[in-house]
Design a protein around this nucleic acid. Sequence first.
DNA 1: CTGAAAGCGCTTACAG
DNA 2: CTGAAAGCGCTTACAG
Lengths: 433, 433
Amino acid sequence: MKALFLRRIQKLDPDSRPLELMETQITVPGTGEVLIRVAACGICHTELDEIEGRLRQNRKSLTKRLAFCKLPWKGFHWKAGHHMAVTIYDVARHAGVGIGTVSRAMNNSTKIRPETKARIRKAVRELKYRPHALARALALQKTGLIAILLPVFTGYFYIELLKAIQREISQHGYDLVLYSILQSGRTGPCLRRILKERRVDGVLVLSLQIPDAVAQLFRRSGLPVVLADGMHQKLDSFFVENEQGAFEAASYLIAMGHSRIGMIDARLSSPPAHSRLIGFRKALAAHHIPWDPGSLIISDTVSEKDGFNREAGYEAMKRLLALKKNRPTGIFISSDIQAAGAVQAIREAGLGIPDDMAIVGFDDIELAEYLGLTTMHQPLSEMGETAVHRLIQRIGDPDLPVLHRGFETRLVIRQSCGGSRQGASQSLNGARS
Amino acid sequence: MKALFLRRIQKLDPDSRPLELMETQITVPGTGEVLIRVAACGICHTELDEIEGRLRQNRKSLTKRLAFCKLPWKGFHWKAGHHMAVTIYDVARHAGVGIGTVSRAMNNSTKIRPETKARIRKAVRELKYRPHALARALALQKTGLIAILLPVFTGYFYIELLKAIQREISQHGYDLVLYSILQSGRTGPCLRRILKERRVDGVLVLSLQIPDAVAQLFRRSGLPVVLADGMHQKLDSFFVENEQGAFEAASYLIAMGHSRIGMIDARLSSPPAHSRLIGFRKALAAHHIPWDPGSLIISDTVSEKDGFNREAGYEAMKRLLALKKNRPTGIFISSDIQAAGAVQAIREAGLGIPDDMAIVGFDDIELAEYLGLTTMHQPLSEMGETAVHRLIQRIGDPDLPVLHRGFETRLVIRQSCGGSRQGASQSLNGARS
DNA sequence: CTGAAAGCGCTTACAG
DNA sequence: CTGAAAGCGCTTACAG
């Protein structure tokens, strides 16, 4: 296998004419591979053919050298980066100007004569030139990239958020770099790395907690961070009013006539889980319903995960159903995905929803509609858009004051509490049909 | 508002001692803003405080100048990039070596003395140095980024795929840049842009068709592309055996005793939709069941989308149910999400599944389990992993031969055809309960 | 308005 | 083994 490797030497010798071959040499690494290295001055992408022609003419000398190495000549072969990319130098030469002028033409500088600009634009079109993003970023100290951190795709919840974020961000000319966090403990290290690597202009953090030390670091560095579905005192934060939502959810169960009300929550170290419990208890208190610790199940026993998953909801509901006395008749479940598991457990027990057990979820993921689940809707798109908007603002001015804003949830009534406005005809008691 | 702007001048004067202030000057732009520009030679991050101290000592001269501009002195204020990042120069000076040596120490070069390396490592730790990703990428011609193109998050389908891809890719030390394609026509332009910008080392394309001209361009450029859930003759492609899957799905309906079998498909310009129709028809033919064009509904009439969505499935099923004569008793639906819509239509018509209408879906998204939907499972994780693996390989050697590989689907039997092995107790005929 | 040059922060042949 | 220098492909004060 042969390789002809063209290498551009820009300033090797300012006086050398363009296209002049500076050297040819042969190296023979391990497996009989032959590398012919040709350094030429000011090679332009569009001139590669000419270069190759010259080399062909020069072939006898190459062949001689190859023979010396006891290797046959088998023709030319371009190395990996087959076609060299067009650079600003190519454009400059093609248009007969300096590279600075090309740059000004590309960046809509005012300090350029219209005719010059037009000429350069034409060259750009002809060579199909487009600036190398990295080089531009390095010179500009601006990458055009935004990092987004999120817990492993737990699925449904993030789709709507991501969609809104992606739409908004690309509208502002940015691209998104995805960092998915496998364990919550990795959030800090990941952020530190992002900060140091300086590959992005800003960071969007979804549903993750940021250690104070890291928040501090970001503030000092001036690299903007915005939280969505999360909260940090020192950073822009957009969050769902979990407490208000849980309060409403529980109040609704009470309004539907339930007096023994339980809750299935996720691990309390998760801020939403924590707030939802608080809202739940406040609702009970507001309605003078006594608090029974026995009817609160933290569904994080199943795995090392935070408990926001179907299996956890399933197990938790089974434990609730096993309660001998004072079994609740209404349950507030801290997420729809847990509720899905809970529904399964209720079905398997041969019980009916809402007759034997009423449930209210939280999130309003698409699945909730299929389940006929009454739940709290979160305004995820709105939150995502707002967060992006703020991030863009802050990239423009890192010294903006910190902004916190909550988004209220909204009760969506379906069938799982019996209070459907459309009647219970679509209830989900498949098990009893 | 004041700003003290520190600017590093590296080679301004090779003889100037470190920390020497080279100039101080004041500019007064528009709104009474004062910019004090201080260029110093070889300022190190860890020495900023010292610099500031000197400036403070020099304050009287600054104050004088400010007074000249009729502006009060209000102390120092660091400009945006508050803390300057640590560079390789800082480390080199801290360790008393050249920057080349630092680089070698960072990159595990063999050509470095262990003691030197240890000393540099220590400096790195002390200064918390980490290379600037962009600069490194520019010098190395390797960005550590992989682009992933996918149609707008239609949701469920891509979660599993993305999860597998993300896992695999980060294992190889890459990060993912997300490009979501709003209209399929944007695929080409987006790819061209990615190619030209050279921000990534490779491209993963999900479910999108690549124009021949663009494929050609990529081949010539040497930037690796791999397709997952898609196919192009000239590019590595990993795809689901849609035809085989549709064949099996239809065969299953036939085996369940149906002889009037319909299909709901998506727009046929979508390759999977097309293949699934072919597989479907082949199954009919194989079992000598006559083909009735009236019982095929292409569900793309609802919007400009491709038809792979719930609303489209809903409308399509309504049209099928409206059939006066020869109404099918079994339907193969080209995606689970359409099937979800179809289920709703069947329910609303007061019909039962599978008694009045049996359905088989395709995809096996999580929703299918809740719906009790019998469907074709796609090995998405496996396909995602394989695609990434190939991409990494190809980044290592762009001249690898083109690889194509199909992944077989698997029938998952639930309740929607009545053939459940667990009995029909969990069937979804909520409408009739 | 324009070109030449310094700089963005790294890597790596080259010459000790 | 190590330092000095050229190069990666751009932008932008600076000096005409």
